[in-house]
Amino acid sequence: MEALITTLKKEIIEVLNLEEMEIEDIETDAPLFVEGLGLDSIDALELIVLLEKKYGLKIETAEEGKKILFSVRTMAEFIKGNK
C-alpha cells in the first residue's frame, strides 16, 4: 500500500504539473481539494483520466468520485480494492 501511495503522489505531481512540490509535501490523508493541495475541477477531471489511463478504473458517479478523490489514501484504496 505504501509503495502505491508513493507512486500515486509522483503521478499526481506529474499529471497536475505541481512542479514546485515534492512527494513529501503531499499529505496522504489530507483533502486534495479546496484545503490541502487546493486542487480545482479541471484537476479532478485530470485525476479521473489518470485512474482510467494508468489503472483502467472508471468512476461511475459524482458521489463516488467525491469519496474516491478525497485524498491520496482514498485513491490508493480504490485502486487496491479494484485490482
Binding site: V15, I42, D43, E46
Partner: peptide, 9 residues
C-alpha cells in the same frame, strides 16, 4: 483515446 481536460482548457 484520453482527451486531456487540462490541455483542452
Amino acid at each position: 483515446y484520453f482527451p486531456s481536460p487540462s490541455v483542452f482548457v
